[in-house]
């Protein structure tokens, strides 16, 4: 009654497990242990080529994580700015943020990657990895902007009125009262975006960045074992996203503490 309950649904990440689901057989467990079992089976029964593929991937996994973490950090900063812009009373700031979101969301990620990569190349010479991170962060910042906006809007107006009535100005109100509460609404979709971004980083393999997928492609093109290589790559991605979704679920669970009676 007193609080607007908004669940932000952004459905392009892996499903985050429900912490209240205590059943022995959950989709997450079946997927996780199934993935582990299949990987173990393949590696043990046919170390050549599966173990060789697996040994070839760690460098790529590291790069994938580097790109993911750096991109999400950039996307969170851009998203916060864009989200605040979208709710700002300042017409210029508002319009700039809205336009950024509109434009980015209207162009396919892969096209944006190419575009920013080559556009950057015209202006400054940056390493491929950095160009990829800027492109991914720029794109996901727009999606994140909408998440922040929705999260901030989900907080009851009474909260900011109470804060203003005590003498806080608008930015102090945002910092001390609104954002700390909005964070809980924002975290699940941000987690989703994080996982979605991790998967989308596979696109940067096209830009000469040696992530998991590119490492795999290199292995496959030398060994001609395309099926085996991509099987292993799919399993590795799946394992990573499953672990991440479990981690996020635990964090979400812990963050909800002051809502519990």
């Amino acid at each position: 009654m007193r609080e607007k309950k908004v669940v932000i649904e952004v459905g392009d990440g892996a499903a985050i497990p429900d912490p209240n689901d205590k059943g022995l057989f959950t989709a997450w467990r079946i997927s996780f242990f199934g993935t582990l079992a299949i990987m173990a089976f393949l590696v043990i029964n046919r170390p050549d080529p599966y173990l060789d593929i697996l040994k070839y991937l760690p460098d790529g996994i590291l790069i994938t994580f580097k790109v993911t973490f750096a991109s999400i950090a950039l996307a969170l900063v851009l998203g916060l700015i864009a989200g605040l812009g979208r709710i700002s009373k300042n017409k210029f700031f508002n319009l700039a943020a809205s336009t950024y979101i509109e434009v980015v969301r209207g162009i396919p990620l892969l096209v944006q990657l190419f575009y920013i990569y080559f556009a950057l190349g015209h202006i400054v010479r940056v390493p491929d990895l950095v160009a990829a991170i800027i492109a991914m962060g720029f794109c996901y910042g727009a999606y994140m902007g909408e998440v922040f906006r929705a999260g901030i809007n989900s907080i009851d107006d009474g909260q900011s009125e109470a804060s203003l009535s005590l003498g806080f100005n608008r930015s102090q109100t945002m910092r001390y009262v609104i954002l700390p509460q909005a964070w809980r609404t924002i975290l699940p979709p941000v987690g989703n975006e994080f996982i979605a971004l991790l998967k989308d980083t596979s696109l940067v393999s096209i830009l000469a960045v040696s992530d998991i997928l590119r490492r795999g492609r290199e292995f496959a093109s030398e060994s001609f074992l395309y099926f085996e290589t991509y099987t292993m790559i799919a399993l590795v991605y799946l394992l990573i996203t499953l672990i991440l979704s479990k981690l996020l679920s635990n964090i979400e669970n812990r963050l909800g503490h002051y809502e519990r009676r």
Binding site: R2, E3, D156, G158, Q159, E161, A162, S163, L164, S165, L166, G167, F168, N169, V177, P180, Q181, Y258, E259
Partner: peptide
Amino acid sequence: INRVREEVGMVFQNFNLFRH
């Protein structure tokens, strides 16, 4: 206005306590 508001306390119908 923020300095004026410091001197004027307000109590709301729906309390509006900071929930966090």
